[in-house]
Nucleic acid binder design. Structure first.
Length: 196
DNA sequence: GTCAGTCCTG
DNA sequence: CAGGACTGAC
């Protein structure tokens, strides 16, 4: 049909060699062993819990709260990446539930609230706090509800026709970050947080 | 050129 | 969640 095959050969030569294998020069390389020293599963767990407070942590903030890790470009980008992935999941859930509500006949945001027994809450909690051994801060519920309503209104208003309609929502949500409790700065915060 | 961020894949 | 491609600001 319409495949002239003559106007789409622009790409394929963008290997600018700007890729960095992230092989930080390991100074202390005794007897040939290179200590990986990456982020541990606990760091991931901690990051997820932090997400309940901050959706958009700055790299500086991350360095403060993960003082026990030696930051290099890889670690930094990996942590940034984690939060980016966290946000993706978060927003995908929000959109999903907002659309579901609309399909279910909900007409106003007044009928969209998020409590600890909401399906949406359970989905989020399952993702960031799977073991359910952390008490999710109330503020997170509020932010989640605001986000859900933001999506709901945007969709109802037909904003989603614009390819970048979510940007406006992100702009709103990024301002709702809370202060992360000082305890999170402790390398052993998990034990302390989950002990209570 | 780098780097933080996103998109979208797997 | 990690990879890879890509964008945008520095």
């Amino acid at each position: 049909m319409a495949q002239p095959g003559c106007g789409t050969d622009v790409s394929k030569a963008t290997l600018t060699g700007s890729l960095q294998p992230c092989q930080e020069t390991v100074g202390g390389n005794w007897n040939g062993w290179i200590a990986p020293e990456g982020l541990s599963p606990n760091h991931l767990k901690k990051a997820k819990l932090m997400f309940f407070y901050t959706r958009y942590p700055s790299s500086n903030m991350l360095k403060m709260f993960f003082s026990d890790v030696k930051f290099n470009r890889c670690i930094t980008s990996q942590l940034i990446k984690w939060f980016s992935n966290f946000r993706e999941f978060y927003y995908i859930q929000m959109e999903k539930f907002a659309r579901q509500a609309i399909n279910d006949g909900v007409t106003g945001v007044e009928d969209l609230s998020i409590s600890r027994d909401s399906e949406l809450y359970r989905a989020l909690n399952m993702h960031y706090n799977k073991a359910n051994d952390f008490e999710v801060p109330e503020r997170f519920l509020e932010v989640a509800q605001i986000t859900l309503r933001e999506f709901f209104n945007a969709i109802v208003a037909g904003k989603d026709v614009d390819p970048s309609w979510k940007k406006a929502i992100y702009k709103v949500i990024c301002k709702l970050d809370s202060e992360v409790p000082e305890i999170f700065k402790s390398p052993n915060c998990l034990q302390e947080l989950l002990h209570e």
